[in-house]
């Protein structure tokens, strides 16, 4: 099911716009995440697609050929996974999963067989007759997913489905969730504030800020070719290299950085993993802090630009605080943004 949004905007009461007019097209079977900090409008956009909020006049939302702009949520035939999971505590796991099918008034036998099918798909067999309160966080997440998927929705909408879990579990379930969503084969829209989640799960990511989609593309595109400082900083924590453009390259406080020939006049960014200690490097900096993180050291550097930068250092030993170091950056690792 393709999803087409045209000029979809949302204003709450007389307040500022929560979502500026947005156009978006999502192909059948595609997994798209909406990524952004809290308050960026990503959940509003999701709820507009679900039909839980009504868009400002002038919007059009199409599921395939059907215009659903004015359909209430219960008639849009979507599957939604809520941040809190919103499992019905008065029903068993099986009854939760079968609820959407019961609402479609399917014959009992069919409901039963489809529920069993989904239970097996989500590997919930041992828990099928348990009460919701007897499930762990990870199990609840799978039940929520199974419940949303059981009625074979046209589109699956997931609102921060991993954020209710603790950090260790979140990592483990991320890949499992990605695999399950792929096996469903439906169109999926996935809201998250965690860039790792977005990059790991989706085919395309829409980065949102202040009620607008700033950039949309595959995870690699966003990571390697961000088009704005916000996207560069939010996806992969790129750091700005502030300096003057003159002959020879970028003149920083700690030295002159040669730029590739094709670099435009826009700001230049670099990621911590690309800032390398190099005895012959062109840049000088002073080590401010050294944090040992197991696989690598994280060095805080001053005097390279007027703001503190970080470098990841792989090696058996690290420079000491207060030491002066020289650094280099591979030209292909520089992120040159358009103006």
């Amino acid at each position: 099911m393709t999803l087409t949004l045209t000029c979809v905007a949302k204003t709450y009461g007389s307040g500022p716009r929560a979502l500026h007019p947005t156009d978006l097209r999502i192909e059948t079977g595609e997994i798209l995440s909406l990524l952004g900090p809290s308050g960026c409008g990503k959940t509003t956009l999701l709820r507009l697609i679900a039909g839980l909020e009504e868009a400002d006049p002038g919007a059009e939302i199409r599921f395939g050929d059907e215009d659903v702009t004015h359909l209430p949520v219960e008639r849009r035939h979507i599957g939604m996974v809520f941040q809190s999971y919103a499992l019905f505590p008065n029903m068993s796991v099986r009854d939760n999963i079968g609820y959407g099918l019961r609402m479609q008034r399917l014959p009992r036998a069919e409901i039963r067989s489809r529920v069993e099918e989904v239970i097996a798909l989500c590997r919930l067999e041992p828990y099928a007759d348990r009460a919701i309160t007897a499930l762990s966080g990870g199990q609840r997440q799978r039940v929520a997913l199974a419940r949303a998927f059981a009625p074979r929705p046209r589109i699956m909408l997931l609102d921060e489905p991993l954020s209710a879990l603790d950090a260790a579990l979140r990592l483990a379930l991320r890949d499992e969730l990605a695999a399950l969503l792929r096996s469903f084969g439906t169109t999926v829209i996935f809201v998250t504030h965690d860039q790792d989640e977005a990059l790991a799960i989706s085919d395309r990511v829409a980065v949102m800020e202040a009620g607008q989609i700033r950039q949309i593309g595959t995870p690699e595109e966003l990571y390697r070719a961000p088009r704005s400082p916000f996207v560069a900083e939010f996806v992969g924590h790129a750091m700005p290299l502030a300096g003057a453009r003159r002959v020879g390259g970028l003149h920083l406080a700690g030295g002159i950085l040669p730029l590739p020939a094709e670099a435009g006049p826009g700001p230049v960014y670099v990621r911590a993993e690309d800032l390398r200690l190099d005895p012959h490097g062109p840049l000088r900096a002073c080590v401010d802090s050294v944090t040992f993180l197991g696989t690598h050291y994280r060095l805080g550097l001053s005097a390279l630009t007027d703001q503190r930068l970080y470098a990841l250092h792989h090696g058996q030993s690290a420079p000491r605080v207060g030491e002066a170091v020289t650094l280099s950056i591979a030209p292909e690792a520089l992120i040159c943004l358009p103006l």
Binding site: R76, M80, A86, N90, Y99
Partner: peptide, 23 residues
């Protein structure tokens, strides 16, 4: 979200009352 979940699964208001709110 409980009520929204029931509605997203296709429940009309009367079912939301019986299946979600009253329980």
């Amino acid at each position: 979200a409980l009520e929204e979940a029931a509605r997203s699964l296709g429940a009309p208001p009367s079912r939301v009352l019986w299946d979600v709110l009253l329980p």
